[in-house]
Design a protein around this nucleic acid. Structure first.
Lengths: 337, 337
DNA sequence: GACGGCTATACATACGTATTCAAGTAGCTA
DNA sequence: TAGCTACTTGAATACGTATGTATAGCCGTC
């Protein structure tokens, strides 16, 4: 027997007040007397009343919901980036703490995602997660700005980029990882990752790597750099390429954990794993400590990242203030170095 | 310059019809003439009109949204189960294909999650993800049923359980994994996992394991079974316990990948990894193929699982039909066996 | 040619909330 | 006691859509 769910009128009747008073009491409006508020809350409790999201959103033109947008370049079957996935939990919790819901969506780059969410009032703001160069998406971001939409993206900010950005201190991470390897006595440190244009984060990591080498009086050797996307097979191929080149190297700094793990596999297969060649990754995905040896890596704090993204977006929505944020990183030393 | 977003009245004015006609034209109501529908669609396109979710949901008392509910037993910092996380992507896509949105939420077991979602009309149905025994939550599920809520859960169904269930064929998976090890010539196969009451899935996997042993004329040995939760450290501890018992064994079947990887680490540390002791896991989490050696495991098809959950729930919402679903599993042989 | 049946559209309304505005009450001063 | 303020509460309304009911036009039939 499913009875109709209670409305604010039912609460009002039970508490002996009017519907507007119920609304005010529940939303914390200070003009309601303590005594009345107490009666209303009791009535609401008793009837298991909860505010109707649709009605509330319609009335106040705000959904109290954020949309999390995963960019996707490959086919539909692609696995989502594990670091991004690890942000989901903390984001949901942070949203809940602010009284927001989180809506998840995956979008092909080619689609009309820019009209989807903000427009249909399902969400008050958008969190964009996707590797790559945001310049490519600039026209879409411009549309968002035109429509007065709020959004944050994960990635490097600065230099005329649109909207807010939250990112790790990639340069610092690259510097620390490389310095760590130098301190371990490594001298010929290879870099796996696509440091070219279009991958600003990897580029920053490379700059940190380069700075650390210079600080130790070493000139970066272009023969020790191999392009690789964050992908196990790609990392493996990159390491094989390095081995095939015949250039001596005693360590690898990979711009992503997944590539680092692939590289370790290739090294082990060639019989040149530890202690001959040390490996350091970047990201600290959950699988990093499951690898063997467990991967030394630059930890991006998923909690901090998730909270910064959510906080920045909600602040923009509610106060209009916008500011980029750069999060500290930390080297996590495990067995692979 | 952010102008007001267009409503169905704006479209109506532009197309020279009434607002109801716009609504009918856009929702595919057959009583609208083709000619009129065409004009309406053009006008909608021109103004970038999209239906207001809140108003629509309020009017039709349906949100066109599903809620994905992660159960959580530990502290707030706990990492979400990787298999569940890998369902998120496919679920989102499947929901989108049905015209639904997906809302994500994490709930402590103790909280009032049962009133949250369905009740506030944020979602038309709930997908429950969480290890453990649903009997424990029975009172909450009963409340959901009482209120006429729709929900599916991932886990074993049957025997008087409430609501719909979708699960892998756990018994079959256990059987295949064990048979595979037997075919590889292994005879003393240990089982890592809590097979007792309260963990019906693990229990089923154990039954498959047991059936395979019997089929080979082997009696399961209770000294070869160790409890373990799906956790790296726990799996490691379980393997150490096995080693300490001094009972001979030449293979391990672990009821979860994470425990299997932990066990492999313990074995390697003790110098008793491959080829001495083979390991097979269950789940096929993304990290399984990153382990070294890559883990042989029982693959639960995340795509199929996600689609089955979403399809079952939407069918229940829209047609009222409910039916449990059991998904086939498949052994993925990698290096660890 | 009147009437029934059919099609396509318009009119009116309801969904449940939040907020504006008005009104009522009590407390206080002159 | 009149008048003013501060504090609560209620009445009325709007948010944008979907749908039940009514209406207008049209065709065909006896």
């Amino acid at each position: 027997m499913t009875q109709r769910r209670p409305t604010s009128f039912d609460i009002a009747a039970l508490a002996g007040v009017s519907q507007p008073t119920v609304s005010r009491a529940l939303s914390g409006n200070p003009s309601v007397s303590d005594e009345t508020r107490k009666r209303v809350l009791e009535a609401a409790e008793q009837l298991h009343y909860t505010v109707d999201k649709n009605a509330s959103g319609l009335r106040r033109q705000r959904a109290k919901t954020l949309a999390l947008l995963f960019f996707e370049e490959g086919p539909e079957t692609a696995v989502l980036n594990p670091f991004y996935l690890s942000l989901v939990g903390p984001m949901v919790r942070r949203c809940a703490a602010h009284g927001y819901d989180l809506l998840i969506s995956i979008q092909q780059l080619s689609s009309d995602w820019h009209v989807d969410y903000e427009d249909s009032r399902k969400a008050d703001g958008i969190i964009l997660l996707g590797y790559g160069d945001y310049l490519e998406y600039r026209p879409k971001l411009e549309q968002l700005v035109d429509r007065g939409a709020h959004f944050v993206r994960w990635g490097t900010g600065g230099d005329g980029q649109l909207g807010m950005a939250v990112s790790s201190d990639n340069e610092r991470g690259g510097f620390e990882a490389t310095t760590h390897l130098l301190q371990r006595g490594r001298r010929q440190i290879a870099f796996i990752g696509t440091a070219g244009a279009g991958f600003p984060e990897v580029q920053e990591r490379w700059r940190g790597y380069s700075r650390a080498l210079h600080a130790a009086g070493i000139e970066p050797d272009s023969r020790l750099q191999v392009d690789s996307s964050p992908d196990e097979a790609d990392g493996r191929a990159a390491a094989e390429k390095l081995l095939a080149r015949g250039v001596e190297f005693d360590a690898i700094f990979a711009a992503s954990d997944v590539a680092a793990i692939g590289a370790m596999h290739a090294l082990q297969q060639a019989g040149r794993g530890l202690p001959e060649i040390a490996v350091v990754g970047f990201d600290d995905i959950p699988a990093a400590c499951l690898a063997s040896p467990p991967l030394t890596t630059v930890t991006q704090d998923a909690h901090a990242a998730a909270e910064a993204l959510v906080d920045a977006l909600i602040e923009a929505i509610e106060t209009g203030k916008t500011a980029d944020r750069i999060l500290p990183v930390r080297l996590t030393v495990r067995g692979s170095s």
